[in-house]
């Protein structure tokens, strides 16, 4: 290989080439997939993941351009570098998929998720829940004498941490939107 002085994967213009292609360590990647907003497109994406045995850690989808019929799917997936590359290539091959961006390798990006947490309790636990919510800058969006619903926006790990703290304080239910992400800068 080196004797002939060819750079690994010199033609693919992919950051993948900077990593060990045979690494067995699983990586977590956030992908932004821009798709034609047509019936069945989400089923195609999900079917690809189930059919080929890939992981979906989180997935969000909504129309982002009504006149251009374009939706944006943000998905968090995990796998070895080779599997991540396959996932991107397989997504790119779906006919109504216009663009696939790997936000994890394409430079800095911001990731946010919204969670709603229902915490039930009385007395000290209720006060403590409210105090921690303030620390996390969570909003109270519903309150009864025995419960709160907190709204928290942040990275998935921030939501995880909040849920962990709320569990002993009476966390009854939670709903999370999954990650939405954008690349930083222009």
């Amino acid at each position: 290989m080196n004797a002939l002085n060819i750079q690994k994967g010199a033609s693919s213009h992919s950051a993948y080439d900077l990593r060990d292609p045979n690494a067995q360590v699983e990586e977590r990647h956030t992908l932004a997939v821009l798709v034609e907003n047509e019936p069945g497109v989400l089923a195609r994406v999900i079917g690809l993941f189930s059919g080929r045995g890939y992981n979906i850690d989180s997935l969000t989808v909504a129309e982002v351009d009504h006149t251009g019929h374009q939706s944006r799917i943000t998905m968090v997936t995990s796998g070895t570098p080779a599997v991540i590359e396959q996932i991107k290539a397989q997504l790119g091959r779906i006919v109504p998929v216009h663009e696939v961006h790997d936000l994890t390798v394409e430079g800095a990006s911001v990731e946010r998720e919204l969670g709603l947490f229902k915490v039930c309790g009385q007395g000290d636990k209720r006060v403590e829940a409210l105090r921690i919510a303030e620390i996390f800058r969570a909003n109270v969006v519903d309150s009864t004498l025995e419960s709160f619903v907190f709204e928290l926006v942040g990275t998935p790990s921030k939501l995880d941490a909040f849920a962990e703290l709320m569990r002993p304080l009476g966390l009854k239910e939670l709903a999370r939107t999954g990650v939405a992400a954008l690349a930083r800068g222009i």
């Binding site: 060819i6 994967g9 010199a10």
Partner: peptide, 12 residues
């Protein structure tokens, strides 16, 4: 593109 590096990692 999904055929490339699917089963065998290639150099070029």
């Amino acid at each position: 593109p999904s055929s490339i590096n699917k089963v065998i990692h290639v150099d070029l």
